[in-house]
């Protein structure tokens, strides 16, 4: 055996430190895991709904893109279809919500023959610019909301709705 023999006192010290260390780690690890969990959550793919519209088909002219997701309303689960007006600005995809900021009707691109390059709300003749900016003098008081949007495998994927960031 070697010269530096481990004394009984040292042996007990090492053992207790080791076991204590394991116990402390056992308690701290879950706490640390809970604390950092929100950071580790995956956000990119899950919240986006894939549509059947190819990104290559999107031009600078807004087109309607429908997307469907499941909505649970108390005990009633239903499939909800929503749509978005999607167009390209340069290479950037932009998706606007079709919900009029006045009272919630559905707006159409070019719905008013006199203003073919604006969004038009048929209910009370509200109008919006292409970037969603509401036109003064028409009933809406704010710009159209915007969807988060990205490309997934060549198709348009639509995410959460947020306030318009373009105007």
């Amino acid at each position: 055996m070697s010269n530096n023999r481990v004394s009984r006192r040292q042996f007990l010290g090492y053992t207790l430190t080791g076991v204590g260390g394991f116990m402390a780690a056992g308690m701290l690890m879950p706490m640390v895991r809970f604390a950092v969990d929100p950071i580790l959550q995956q956000h990119d793919a899950g919240d986006y709904v894939l549509t059947d519209k190819a990104v290559a088909d999107i031009t600078e002219e807004p087109v309607r893109v429908d997307f469907t997701y499941e909505q649970v309303d108390a005990w009633y689960t239903s499939e909800v279809t929503n749509s978005a007006w999607v167009y390209k600005e340069g290479d950037k995809l932009i998706a606007l919500s079709p919900v009029c900021k006045h009272l919630g009707c559905t707006v159409n691109w070019g719905g008013d023959p006199e203003n073919p390059t604006q969004f038009f709300c048929p209910c009370h003749a509200g109008r919006y610019e292409k970037n969603g900016q509401n036109i003064a003098g028409t009933p809406p008081l704010g710009p159209l909301d915007e969807y988060q949007v990205q490309e997934q495998d060549g198709f348009v994927a639509i995410g959460a709705v947020r306030e318009n960031t373009l105007v």
Partner: peptide, 11 residues
Amino acid sequence: TVILEKQFKGR
């Protein structure tokens, strides 16, 4: 009528 309501919700 439901899709009609969706289109013209505000009116």
